[in-house]
């Protein structure tokens, strides 16, 4: 393996750019929220740099500002982030076999919902050069967005700041819809998950389940039922990827 492939790095950068753009408004809001809640600017920025996650760090920071205990903060953040285990486990199948341990550990840091999605739609082996290129843009976007939000901090007109709340979700939709168009199993899994999340959220019986757990339960059930109903054979998987799943970017 060549130590560093500039072409693959640039390809990764290109793939990561839309993610970085999508992260800006969200991290901006986070910076705003953290600093207006009483954290110093450097700490808001350092949280984004060291966590590089949305839901987990939003929830954790919220608890810090509320003066919650260490156990509660740690547990909540961990539960929300368990889903990364599934993503890393999936990603590890595709990593360049020759990648060294320190490089694996660096790449692992960049496993977010969006980076994982884009990486898993990529064909062939995932190299270190590509993944670092893919991760660096979103990391810079996430951190600098936080800095800008923290810096400005004077609250935006409410209509604008609330309008930005939809940005991350719109991005998620843009990731899942094009593959769903081409793959019936994906469409059915999405509908299953939406149904399960809705039931868990609105049925009084399940109301005690936190939003982090809701996502975990619905994802495992939905993807589990999908795997059981539509198992992918090795050869079919490649076709499926070329025809459907891979065209999402």
């Amino acid at each position: 393996m060549k130590s560093f492939n500039k072409k693959e790095f640039r390809h990764g950068l290109k793939r990561g750019l839309p993610i970085a753009m999508g992260y800006l408004p969200v991290s901006f809001t986070f910076g705003l929220m953290a600093v207006s809640g009483g954290l110093p600017i450097w700490m808001a920025v350092f949280i984004s740099l060291s966590n590089l996650t949305s839901a987990g760090q939003f929830a954790g920071t919220n608890l810090i500002l509320m003066g919650a205990g260490f156990l509660e903060i740690t547990m909540t953040t961990f539960i929300i982030n368990i889903r990364y285990m599934l993503m890393s486990l999936s990603l590890t199948q595709r990593l360049d076999k020759a990648m060294s341990l320190p490089k694996r550990m660096m790449v692992a840091f960049g496993v977010t919902d969006e980076i994982f999605s884009v990486a898993s739609m990529e064909q062939g082996t995932l190299t270190f050069s590509f993944l670092i290129g893919l991760i660096i843009g979103p990391l810079i976007g996430w951190t600098s967005g936080t800095f800008l939000g923290a810096l400005i901090c004077t609250s935006l007109p409410e209509s604008l700041s609330s309008a930005m709340g939809i940005a991350l979700y719109a991005m998620f939709i843009a990731i899942i819809i094009p593959p769903a168009k081409k793959s019936r199993p994906v469409t059915i899994i999405i509908l299953l998950c939406v149904g399960i999340t809705g039931i868990l959220k609105y049925l009084p019986l399940f109301r005690a389940i936190s939003s982090g757990f809701r996502v975990i339960i619905a994802s495992i059930l939905g993807a589990g039922m999908g795997a059981w109903l539509f198992p992918i054979d090795q050869d079919v998987e490649k076709n499926n990827k070329q025809e459907g799943v891979n065209q999402c970017n």
Binding site: L86, D113, F172, I176, A180, C193, A227
Partner: peptide
Amino acid sequence: KYIKSFLQYVPFAVLSSLTFPDI
């Protein structure tokens, strides 16, 4: 192949569960 299929379906499952109905 079940675990492999499961892992391939996970991103769609996670992103749709994160999005709806919270959006």
